[in-house]
């Protein structure tokens, strides 16, 4: 039953990915036309040379021909080569995707691990000052621009301590130290700030959500029954209520799975994180068509897979969900 569902979803996903690639292709062409980076902007080259190079890249063909050719290659697993450095797009992706996933997965985990206790405490102490404080912070948290938060943290955690204490508390850019680093502890130190910024918005929303979810569960009949049976409050909360309160949170987390690849773009740019988002941004500005096409299509495929995973997750966790 599950397999049939999955297969059907996968099949339905293909036109989606194709649609994405088509849109991206059309957009890139509308903006750049037949521009070849590094070639078209070298005014000393004769027209003949430029035309020859355009022909080599196939840019003199009508756009639907180019798209068709590109599609043919994709089906064979060939995402093409970058027009700027000639490296295979798949290699570029492989170089950077792990970094992005490291960042986004960590951020999501951080957000979940903080949201749950915050939301539960808020719910249990509903109406008190603790609750109000936490809720206010959550609501405020969503209103802060991400890049600004990142820049402020860099100042607070790296620059100012360096000036007063002689060294930054945490590094301000990159995934590893530029010299002598690379060990897990070093990577962790570099991960903390960007992951925190990324997690910040998530946890602002999720902690409130957990709170309302917890409140909902606590008012359910079975909880009242458990209390009436004389079960200790702790057991009521941790054994029964919590588990059920967390399930809907999974739904929300699932909504974020598709954003795993691109969600961290701003954070990646602010912190110089060597991920896919930042890379796509730089290459889009440089008109490296092939790379941008490859990256966007790949990201879309991941989004679709992410959606699928999310659906499967709900299905596994909540047997009440039916598939249509």
């Amino acid at each position: 039953m599950l397999w049939k569902y999955l297969v059907r979803r996968l099949v339905a996903a293909i036109p989606v990915v194709l649609g994405v690639s088509l849109i991206t292709f059309v957009l890139m062409h509308a903006t750049g036309g037949d521009y070849v980076p590094g070639i078209s902007d070298d005014p000393r080259l004769s027209k003949a040379t430029v035309d020859a190079l355009r022909h080599e890249y196939g840019l003199d063909q009508p756009w639907w021909v180019q798209y068709g050719l590109w599609l043919w290659n994709i089906i064979h697993g060939d995402f093409g080569r970058s027009m700027i450095d000639g490296t295979r797009v798949t290699v570029h992706i492989a170089d950077r995707l792990p970094n992005t996933l490291e960042l986004t997965v960590t951020a999501i985990l951080m957000a979940v691990l903080i949201s749950i206790p915050v939301g539960v405490v808020s719910a249990l102490r509903r109406g008190t000052r603790v609750d109000n404080a936490l809720t206010t912070m959550s609501v405020a948290g969503v209103a802060v621009p991400e890049f600004w938060l990142g820049l402020m943290l860099i100042l607070l955690v790296a620059v100012i301590p360096a000036q007063h204490l002689g060294a930054p508390l945490l590094p301000s850019s990159g995934a590893t130290s530029s010299f002598g680093g690379g060990d897990p502890l070093d990577r962790l130190a570099h991960l903390i700030l960007p992951a925190t910024v990324l997690a910040f918005t998530y946890l602002s929303i999720w902690s409130r959500f957990t709170r309302s979810s917890m409140l909902e569960v606590l008012s359910q009949d079975y909880v009242r029954t458990a209390r009436a049976k004389g079960m200790g409050e702790r057991r009521v909360v941790y054994q029964h209520a919590l588990r059920n309160a967390v399930i809907p949170l999974v739904t929300l987390v699932g909504l974020e799975l598709p954003g795993l690849v691109s969600g961290g773009l701003i954070v990646e740019v602010v912190f110089g994180w060597p991920g896919i988002g930042r890379f796509a941004y730089e290459r889009a500005l440089a008109f490296d068509y092939t790379t941008v096409m490859g990256l966007t299509t790949f990201a879309a495929a991941l989004v679709v897979v992410g959606n699928l995973l999310a659906d499967v997750l709900y299905a596994v966790l909540d047997p009440r969900i039916r598939y249509t």
């Binding site: 989606v16 957009l27 598709p258 796509a280």
Partner: peptide, 18 residues
């Protein structure tokens, strides 16, 4: 689905360039 599958910021950048 197609529209939602394109990573948001990627789309902004592409259309922004346009």
């Amino acid at each position: 689905d197609v529209v939602l599958a394109i990573p948001r910021l990627f789309l902004f950048i592409l259309v922004g360039i346009l």
